[in-house]
Computed example of a mutant assay.
Amino acid sequence: MSEDVAMTGIVDQAADAAEDSALPLAAPSSIPAAELEQLTADIIAALKTVYDPEIPADIYELGLIYKIDVDDDRNIAIDMTLTAPGCPVAGEMPGWVENAVGAIPGVGRVDVTMTFDPPWSQDRMSDEARVALDWY
C-alpha cells in the first residue's frame, strides 16, 4: 500500500501516524478497537477486489485511495483518484468502490469522492503493484 493513505477515525492508526508523519492522527472512536481493526482489514480487502481495467493491479495497491474515514456509525467516506482524469471508467469506478465496501457486514453508508488533487503518480504505487506490473 502507498504509505500516505490517510485513514482517519481508525483508533490504531494513531500509532502508525506517529511512525509516518504523512498520516494524520486519528480521531478517537467509540467503536471497540478490535472491531475497528477488523473493519479496517475488511475495507482494505474489499478495495483490493476493485481493479483498474487498463492496469492489472487493484486500486488499493495502485495508490488510488487517498483517504478512508470511518465514523462512529460505521459510515465510510473514501477519497480516491484515477491514474488519469480521462480514464474511461471515471464514471463507473466510484460505484464499484461503493459496492465493494458497502457489501461488508456492518458497514453503513459508503460515500466515494473523486479527487485529482494531488494528481496520481507512479510514486503512490506499492512495491507489490510495481512487481506485478514490472514497473521499477
Rank of each mutant, 00 (worst) to 15 (best):
A17I: 03
A17M: 04
A18G: 01
A18R: 11
A18M: 01
E19L: 14
D20P: 02
S21Y: 01
S21C: 04
A22Y: 02
L23C: 07
L25M: 15
A26C: 07
A27Y: 03
S29D: 09
I31F: 09
I31Y: 12
P32K: 14
P32L: 11
P32Y: 15
P32E: 15
A33R: 14
A33I: 14
E35G: 15
E37P: 01
L39V: 12
T40R: 15
A41G: 15
D42Y: 08
I43M: 12
I43H: 07
I44V: 15
I44M: 13
I44F: 13
A45C: 08
A45Y: 10
A46R: 03
L47D: 08
K48Q: 15
T49S: 13
V50Q: 12
V50S: 12
Y51D: 06
D52Y: 06
E54S: 01
E54Q: 09
I55K: 04
I55E: 06
I55W: 11
P56E: 11
P56I: 01
P56D: 04
A57I: 00
A57V: 02
D58R: 00
I59G: 03
Y60T: 00
E61S: 04
E61C: 02
L62V: 00
L62F: 04
G63I: 04
G63F: 04
G63R: 00
I65K: 02
I65R: 07
I65D: 10
K67P: 00
K67L: 09
D69H: 14
V70Y: 05
D71S: 01
D71T: 07
D72W: 02
D72I: 01
R74Q: 12
R74I: 01
N75Q: 03
A77Q: 11
A77S: 13
I78N: 04
D79V: 10
M80C: 14
M80I: 07
L82I: 02
L82Y: 10
T83W: 12
T83I: 13
A84G: 04
A84M: 06
P85M: 05
G86N: 10
C87V: 06
C87E: 05
C87D: 05
P88W: 08
P88C: 01
V89W: 09
V89F: 12
V89N: 05
A90R: 12
G91I: 03
G91K: 08
M93W: 00
M93Q: 10
M93P: 01
P94A: 07
P94W: 08
P94I: 00
W96P: 03
E98Q: 15
E98L: 03
E98F: 00
N99E: 15
A100G: 09
A100M: 06
A100L: 07
G102P: 08
A103C: 07
I104L: 05
I104S: 09
P105V: 07
P105Q: 05
P105G: 09
P105N: 10
G106K: 02
V107I: 14
V107E: 00
G108N: 12
R109Y: 00
V110L: 09
V110W: 13
V110T: 11
D111T: 14
T113R: 13
T113I: 04
T113K: 14
M114H: 00
T115L: 05
D117I: 11
P118I: 00
P118F: 08
P119M: 13
W120K: 06
S121I: 01
R124G: 02
R124Y: 08
S126N: 06
S126G: 14
S126M: 05
E128M: 08
E128C: 06
E128L: 15
A129H: 09
R130F: 11
